[in-house]
Design a binder for these strands. Sequence first.
DNA 1: TCAAAAGTGTTCGGACTACACCCATGA
DNA 2: TCATGGGTGTAGTCCGAACACTTTTGA
Lengths: 235, 235
Amino acid sequence: MHRYSGQTRILVAVDCIIFGFDGFDIKLLVIQRGIKPEKNKWSLMGGFLQPEESPEQAANRVLKQLTGLEGVYMEQLQTFADPHRDPVERTLSIAYFALIDIHQYEKQISDEYHAEWFLLKDKPELIFDHDEMVRIAQKELRYKAALHPLLFELLPQKFTIPQLQSLYEGVYDTVFDNRNFSRKVLSTGLLIKQKEKDKMNSKKGAFYYKLDKKKYKANFQAFLNFIPNPDKFLS
Amino acid sequence: MHRYSGQTRILVAVDCIIFGFDGFDIKLLVIQRGIKPEKNKWSLMGGFLQPEESPEQAANRVLKQLTGLEGVYMEQLQTFADPHRDPVERTLSIAYFALIDIHQYEKQISDEYHAEWFLLKDKPELIFDHDEMVRIAQKELRYKAALHPLLFELLPQKFTIPQLQSLYEGVYDTVFDNRNFSRKVLSTGLLIKQKEKDKMNSKKGAFYYKLDKKKYKANFQAFLNFIPNPDKFLS
DNA sequence: TCAAAAGTGTTCGGACTACACCCATGA
DNA sequence: TCATGGGTGTAGTCCGAACACTTTTGA
């Protein structure tokens, strides 16, 4: 086999920043690390890149191991490759961030990894540079969700507009005017109104909506404006 | 030395997508590859990641080797890691894109790498997945420049508003209304008017401007709106 | 004097914000 | 009947797009 000579090869991993939404707050899924070093400390779910595997495949494999879910929204965030980020041996990590409907996950409990959801704001300290990964992922989430209809990935099939608003308010840690919010969302034409109402959260009840998948895909790249004054939240 | 056992290590490279602007068109700097395979074919400038080097350092080293320039705008684009992207041996590439003032470069001619600027629209075919890298970098450039005052990195210290407009028109391959464009740019407050005019390109002459570096840094993350109807160009 | 590019003024329409107000319903 | 959250209506403001028009100057 031909090889490039005289060069150092490096261990490569993927790590997943997994966000979920429980109807009230944004949460992060982390595990208790099973291997040394830092055994039993909190960590992102990850794994080593295998010889015949693309990093996307690796990230999906890792996500499926932990949650049982496939076909989840996921994108490459950034590669972290500081020479000393892992004390055992130089390891490069390609970080991915994933958005999942937390209720889907709950059906698939696998306790093998001692996984736990934490409120994003009081997550434990993570090993290595995983805290930085989460920080950058959160920033990217805010950035992208301000422009693209990304956050629907975190909701169940049927959801109400007040739920959607809570989600946005969680991501941006603020409150929006509910009257303007619902109009703005509906004006995108991405939502299909259902006949039933959710009566859990109010007496009047709020109509359920479903996402119009076709329009969603077609318009995903379009610039929307879900949040007022994006400058305020993204700088 | 401790190591993670039973895992494969992979060769890691960085590749730089280097954009420049000559006053009329957007250009890409590529080299004629000096090593096998694909010797003498066109390629992005790149290099292997060294043992004690971060990928940012590697990208800056590679850029300096080729252009002699330091302190250039550069950001991590994406990591390409398909198992078969390099036929010799599995090689992961962390791609960076850089924006340089092409006239700065011309002062620093180093012919060691057989480098050449090509118009972006008629660049030669590149080796491996470098064409895809360029395509993604171009998309990212369009995306980011629509929101942030990025393209100033491509201009010399003193420039005119019509020059700036040509640059934007090159990036988006379109034409803008010059009257609205200049007002929009000036309204950002990022430009400082100079006393001299550029008389090369018109009889009346256009005033030179300099970038207000402080405001530029402070406002970089702010959402601006340099181009009308961004939807049209970014989907 | 005329052509050509730079730049200013003006108008129009649409989008966004703020907020008054109405609706539906369980307790 | 009243408190609570869901949702519609509307007025004011701002901003971007379009485009008529003025300015400057070399040929």
